[in-house]
């Protein structure tokens, strides 16, 4: 049995004829029996009717109908005129251009983001992808090879050590903290320097010239690079790692947190001597 509250809840839907047959007849039954609800429903129904009846109903003015009819005729005429093939082609071409250079926000966003994503992905893959680096000895030897054959461009071509030190100090801002070693040996001459990278670590490259040979010095600061697998030898109290590639000898050592490498055609012992005498 339906209670009054339920009936009143559906009052609007009932009067608006929005109830399905089952609900409708259930409420109808209730209203027929309940005087209170009946009064309310009749009131609301009458009010609904009053609202409709007391709202003036306007007749569409004749001139508006005529105006619409004539505008429609104009539009039809225009449409038929533009339907000829030549004009159709022209219209298509204009629309084509505007369609192509559309400024819809969604398209603009895609047009901007897509290249950025592709470039970003390419940059990530080519620079940041963790890759297997070739053995450090090989890298050092090949770089020295291009230095020897004058194929390497040095950013700073100077024999002034202070200038080189200043150069690398500037580079400190880009995480390259370099301590330029002092060269005691007179036979050693600075040729220039550049910032570089050695086996994935930023490094400072210094080109030197000895009496008869060119020598490459690379300095990597704070490198945790593992060189322990290389052969090593104790010379004058310092442990040197060494290797050979393309006929160049490479000697590496650690000093504090810094990794040094010297590369030259000189034999290993001479390189270690240069290292121990010239670079404290």
């Amino acid at each position: 049995m339906m209670i009054c509250k339920e009936a009143i809840e559906h009052l609007h839907e009932f009067l608006d004829n929005e109830l399905d047959v089952g609900n409708y007849s259930e409420i109808k039954q209730h209203i027929d029996m309940c005087h209170n609800c009946c009064e309310k429903f009749e009131f609301e129904q009458a009010l609904k009717k009053i609202i409709k009846d007391k709202t003036p109903h306007y007749k569409t003015p004749q001139h508006l109908l005529q105006s619409i009819a004539s505008r429609w005729a104009e539009m039809d005429e225009e449409y038929n005129r533009t339907e000829t093939p030549a004009l159709e082609l022209k219209r298509w071409r204009i629309r084509g251009i505007y369609d192509f250079f559309t400024l819809r926000p969604a398209y603009v966003t895609v047009a901007v983001l897509l290249p950025m994503t592709i470039i970003g992905l390419a940059a990530y893959l080519s620079f940041f992808r963790p890759a297997e680096f070739p053995p450090i000895v090989k890298v050092a030897a090949e770089r020295h090879d291009s230095f020897v054959n004058d194929n390497m461009r040095l950013d700073l071509v100077s024999s002034d050590r202070n200038e080189i030190r200043r150069h690398f100090e500037n580079l400190q801002r880009s995480n390259l903290a370099i301590d330029i070693p002092e060269f005691n040996g007179r036979e050693m001459k600075l040729l220039g320097c550049k910032n570089s990278s050695l086996a994935g670590e930023k490094s400072a490259y210094v080109g030197l010239s000895g009496n008869h040979n060119k020598i490459s010095l690379e300095i990597v600061n704070g490198s945790g690079m593992n060189i322990n697998k290389l052969n090593h030898e104790l010379f004058k109290g310092r442990l040197y790692y060494f290797g050979k590639h393309k006929g160049y000898n490479v000697v590496l050592w650690r000093h504090g947190n810094t990794l040094y490498s010297l590369t030259s055609t000189m034999n290993r012992r001479d390189l270690m001597r240069v290292a121990s005498e010239s670079i404290p």
Partner: peptide, 9 residues
Amino acid sequence: VQETYLKVH
């Protein structure tokens, strides 16, 4: 209403 009927067309 006129604008509406032009659009309708």
